[in-house]
Design a protein around this nucleic acid. Structure first.
Length: 703
DNA sequence: GAATCACGCATTTTT
DNA sequence: TGCGTGATTC
């Protein structure tokens, strides 16, 4: 019954056994981090720590779910892990807010604004409250500035080149906060900030949280921001039972407020902490590790780790220079076919990684041409599409009409004769009456003359579906809504091309399917619970965060969606993965293609990427870490590619090789230059020739 | 108030 | 390349 720790290496074991006081575990890539965390939690349980005293925090819901699974599997007995809290920072904050909503003046079911909603709100405030043309500002940038202000990490700097943005943020911030309040909503930052404030202000509440969560565990600690650090400090209190696990070399979210210094200076904040290095790597071949070490070794401020492995050297890394981006993609696609035939590496064990989503396209085309199954992860997700956002806005507005962002988004979609003028007048009226826009809509307003009738109809529609969507059968109701409102017709009408039309309809269909799926699974969970209540073993060993956390029904779905935009990545069978380097953190494949190793791209140079990188304009250290993360995803084969020339907006631009390539010792590399024909593999030469003649033909036919 | 067309724009990473 | 936005016209 006792946990078997003999399978762990000495450092891993130390990380498991050091249960008291602050502990910093520096877990290099592939060093068995998740394993250690799971063992540590189960070890705590073995020692008699009640499950409900353990709080483990992650950044993503996926990571939380994985951790739950690992712990449950290791603990073996489901009853033992009952009461354990494994949650994201944001979900944790949300739970606290739910508990305390009344004293904060928040409705019990407050809305959570996602990035798109934030932009919409800022846009509205700019126009209506400040009378500023919203085109003058890059709205996402304004939103991120507001976020930094809220977090207290961006003091206004007069005289800075973006002074107008600073001014804008200063004017906007109080109005933005009021706007949130008025809607009974919070944004992502509030999910952390408000709990922090509350715990600071209420000693009793703080005490109860400290008593409940006696053992704290944080994964991916290098990604924490200032607020999260303060929250952890507060919760840890004098007990200081805080174990953080992370890797400063994999800190790639500084642009989002993460502070590497949290992990670098952990010992300053928590003096006397234990520091444990996990450096044995169980993932990659020695060649890959040596190369990755060489790249990351150039970073000045870091907790120097030297990953090692007792596995073999493996094949050398390949560095490929293609004449242009198309050839790069073609080479990668050819290699994928070859590797899956000759080395029997299945597509699911192969990944193509790149810096920016825009790079995905050529790879998609090349793979499609060869009939290779692939899936593109990330990029503009289905939930960023206009029509899906419209549909979601319908659902949200119906459930909660005081969600003004959603309500106003759909009030005239599809066009139903309630234009900007009418909406503006309704808002005016609302302000005059001291009421909300929804109240004006639903109570009727003769002042709105000819539009009054239309508005009454719209309000009726919202009310009707508000009823139907808030109970069981909501997925069917959503479909009816789409039909009744005519969203499909709208998509058909407003698309200029047939494929665009198909994409829009498909996107909405897929959301509807997800809803059906979700409702089914929820029914399943409910009956599972009933079974387990009768003492029957159920299929699912680990509980997913249950309804009490997110709410049930459609509201639960929408809440989950707000906190986890990449719901179900639908594991589409055996296919090659295409994703950005950011998306790849925490994953691994037998064979990895790391593409676009060029100055301006990796390291990325921000605007334009026109070759020469302006030092200081980018965070070179973070770009280096990004490269390191990419390299360490590979188990057996790592191929680094670049293009000598890239077509961008119709113009060809010469590219220089990434400085990171220079840092890798030549003896680890096998260099291929597709630009010089002698060096190119025969198949590639033939393909290039074919491509050349095809282009000639096209030119001759259509001069 | 709605539909159509044309222009012009901008492309990093997202819990 | 595609998209969104704006001006124009009905």
């Amino acid at each position: 019954m006792a946990l078997d720790l003999s399978q762990l290496n000495p450092q891993q074991r130390a990380a498991v056994l050091q249960t008291e006081g602050p502990v910093l575990v520096l877990a290099g890539a592939g060093s068995g981090k998740t394993r250690v965390i799971a063992h540590r939690v189960v070890h705590l349980l073995d020692k008699g720590v009640p499950a409900r005293s353990v709080l483990a925090v992650t950044f993503t819901n996926k990571a939380a779910q994985e951790m739950r699974d690992r712990i449950a599997r290791l603990a073996g007995d489901r009853a033992r892990v009952k009461g354990l809290t494994v949650s994201t920072f944001h979900a944790f904050g949300m739970r606290l807010l739910r508990e305390q909503h009344a004293r904060l003046g928040l409705p019990a079911r407050f809305a959570i604004l996602d990035a798109g909603d934030q932009v919409a709100l800022v846009k509205r405030l700019l126009r209506e409250s400040l009378q500023i043309d919203d085109k003058r500002f890059d709205l996402p940038r304004v939103v991120s500035l507001l976020s930094r202000r809220k977090m207290g990490t961006a003091p206004g700097q007069p005289g800075a080149p973006d002074h107008e943005y600073e001014l804008c943020a200063t004017e906007l911030l109080p109005r933005y906060q009021l706007g949130l309040r008025a809607m009974g909503a919070v944004d992502f930052d509030d999910l952390l900030l408000v709990p922090l404030k509350l715990l600071r202000a209420d000693a009793q509440l703080l005490e109860s949280y400290r008593n409940r969560h006696r053992y704290l565990l944080v994964d991916e600690y290098q990604d924490t921001n200032e607020t999260q650090l303060q929250l952890l400090e507060l919760l840890a209190g004098m007990r200081r039972n805080l174990c953080v696990v992370g890797d400063d070399d994999q800190s790639i979210y500084a642009w989002r407020g993460a502070q590497v210094r949290n992990i670098l200076q952990f010992d300053k904040r928590f003096p006397g902490c234990a520091e444990i290095f996990l450096e044995q790597n169980y993932r990659s071949s020695a060649n890959i590790l040596d190369a990755a070490n060489a790249v990351i070794g150039k970073n000045p401020a870091r907790k120097a780790k030297r990953l090692w492995t007792d596995r073999g050297r493996g094949p050398p890394l390949r560095v490929v220079c293609a004449p242009d981006d198309e050839a790069e993609a073609k080479y990668v696609a050819d290699e994928i076919v070859r590797v899956s035939y000759e080395e029997k590496i299945p597509p699911r064990e192969i990944a193509v990684l790149y810096r920016t989503n825009a790079q995905a396209r050529p790879f998609e085309e090349a793979l499609r041409l060869l009939g290779v199954r692939y899936r593109v992860v990330g990029g503009t997700s289905m939930f960023d599409r206009k029509e899906v956002r419209d549909l979601l806005a319908y659902l949200r507005a119906a459930l909660n009409p005081s969600d003004e962002i959603s309500l106003l988004r759909i009030v005239n979609v599809p066009a139903r004769g309630i234009g900007d003028q009418t909406v503006a007048r309704a808002q005016e009226l609302a302000r005059g009456r001291g009421a909300t826009v929804w109240e004006v809509f639903s109570q009727g307003a003769p002042e709105l003359s000819h539009a009054a009738e239309r508005i009454a109809q719209f309000a009726q529609l919202v009310e009707k579906y508000g009823q139907r969507l808030s109970g069981p059968g909501f997925s069917a109701a959503a479909r009816d809504l789409v039909d009744e409102v005519g969203l499909f017709d709208e998509a058909r009408r407003s698309s200029q091309s047939l494929p665009a039309q198909a994409r829009r309809i498909e996107a909405m269909e897929s959301l509807l399917r997800q809803l059906i799926d979700y409702e089914k699974r929820e029914e399943q969970r409910v009956s599972d619970l009933r079974l387990s209540g009768l003492g029957l073993q159920t299929s699912n060993l680990s509980d997913s965060p249950a309804d009490e956390e997110f709410g049930s029904g459609l509201l639960g779905y929408l809440t989950r969606l707000a906190l986890d935009s990449k719901e179900a990545d639908g594991d589409a069978g055996d296919s090659v993965t295409l994703m950005t380097l950011h998306g790849a953190k925490g994953l691994e494949w037998r064979c990895v293609f790391l593409c676009g190793l060029e100055e301006g791209l990796l390291p990325h140079s921000g605007k334009g990427f026109d070759g020469e990188t302006v030092e200081g304009a980018i965070n070179l250290e973070e770009e280096r870490r990004l490269c390191y993360v990419g390299m360490t995803r590979a188990r057996e084969r790592l191929v680094l590619t670049r293009a000598a020339q890239r077509i961008r907006r119709g113009k060809a631009m010469m590219r220089t090789p990434s400085r990171f390539l220079e840092d890798i010792p030549a003896e680890l590399l096998d260099t291929v230059d597709l630009g010089s024909p002698q060096a190119a593999p025969k198949e590639v030469q033939e393909a290039k020739a074919k491509n050349f003649f095809a282009n000639m033909d096209a030119l001759l036919k259509d001069p």
